[in-house]
Computed example of a mutant assay.
Amino acid sequence: MPRDPLIGIVGKPSSGKSTTLNSLTDANAKMGAFPFTTIDPNRATGYLQIDCACARYGKEDLCKPNYGWCSKGKRHVPIELLDVAGLIPGASQGLGLGNKFLDDLRQADALIHVVDVSGTTDSNGKATRGYDPLQDIEWLQDEIRLWIEGNLQKRWGTIVRRHTATKSPIVETLRAQFGGYGANMNMIAKAVDSIPDLPPLEEWDNEWITKMVKAFMKVKFPTVLALNKIDHPDADKNVSKILLKYPDTRAVLTSAITEVFLRKLAKQNYIKYEEGTEFIDTLEDLGEESGLKPLDEKLMQRVENIRDLVLYRFGSTGVVQVLQEAAKVLDLVPIFTVRNIQTFTE
């Protein structure tokens, strides 16, 4: 990858995309329970948590990286995130902010699809009850496919004539067409090789074009599902349906709004919170020597609800884990550089 990876945060309006961005970063993306809160794409730096090499050698106290930071053997590696405008059905035909969404999307190397599993927002992001979030997964992939496919179909006659005249390999011809989506030769070759019994390009009909676009999407836009709003009473049944329908898709249960709240309390010194875990400590837990501020009755009740409904039940808010899964689909490999392998300096 010739540049730092960019993870796109996608989904319909009001699904929790901007909240997810804020939970992963110190960004202040606008949040709101109404469609199209996000108009312009928000870029921010998130921090991917990985095991640092310092822990292997007992050097945690000496580890001071120039890139990100290390805390108790956990390295926080900067990674760029992009929260784009909400997508609605018909985006490939320009409905909503579809054209803008899809144009922003081409920059991304992988996607975190934030899905509202509470069923309290419809396909357009408007408040409702009992909506089936399975539909969101299906039509989002369809809209991206139709966008790419539509661009290809418009020029298909010219593409075939040029391919035949120049006698170019399929990969070379497709590179010229998919290059605008940030694809390279290796990506296209991988997509082509994944399709069994692929006929010569000049023999492709609409069905073969669709197969090619789907194969390209898997390579260009590997996706992790962030099943968000898991603390809602209706979430369990919807999560089960999604996991049964997409058993091979990476999915993480998340509560982004909970993560934002906990990080805010921690910054204000009301709690000690270990991100990515179930552990919260308050003044009552640690005593006055902790230096924590006391929580009033309302805040204490909210913290207890979070412990019971999210942290103890699911093990974390899931936000740290969803970024880790996005890094996995990109096959990112951490490199820990030092000048001297004996002293581990610089």
Rank of each mutant, 00 (worst) to 15 (best):
F279D: 13
A251E: 09
F34I: 09
A256V: 06
E274W: 08
N151E: 14
C70S: 09
K59I: 04
K328H: 12
K72Y: 03
S71E: 15
N124M: 03
V117L: 12
S290T: 11
K229R: 15
C52G: 06
N228Q: 03
V115T: 07
S123N: 13
A110T: 08
E346H: 08
G32I: 05
V10I: 14
P13C: 00
G98P: 09
D296A: 02
I257R: 10
E207H: 08
L323H: 02
E288V: 10
V117Q: 10
G315F: 07
V338E: 05
P247F: 08
G182C: 08
V252E: 05
S18I: 15
M187E: 15
L286V: 10
I50M: 09
E138T: 12
L299H: 03
T166L: 13
R56H: 06
S290F: 13
W156Q: 13
E288F: 14
H163W: 03
K64L: 04
G16L: 09
A183D: 06
L140C: 12
K64G: 01
N28H: 12
P35H: 08
R175I: 03
N28S: 14
A189V: 01
A27S: 15
V171W: 00
T158V: 12
R43I: 07
W147H: 15
R307N: 13
W204K: 13
N184S: 13
K211I: 00
N305C: 00
C54W: 05
L48S: 02
Y246E: 13
S316N: 09
T282N: 03
G179C: 07
K154D: 13
P247E: 12
G46L: 04
L323R: 08
F279E: 14
L198N: 10
T343R: 09
I257Y: 05
A27L: 11
Q93R: 12
I144S: 00
V338S: 02
A251Y: 00
I280S: 03
L201A: 07
Q342K: 07
L134N: 14
D193L: 10
F221G: 00
A85H: 01
L111V: 02
S92L: 06
V329S: 10
L152N: 02
R3S: 09
I79K: 10
S23N: 07
N340L: 07
G86D: 01
A29P: 03
C52Q: 00
R75E: 05
R106K: 15
F216V: 09
T254F: 08
M185Y: 05
L152Y: 01
R175C: 09
I79Q: 06
F178N: 06
T45P: 02
L253W: 02
F36D: 04
K17R: 08
V260M: 02
I335V: 15
Y270V: 05
A55Y: 03
N206L: 12
T282C: 03
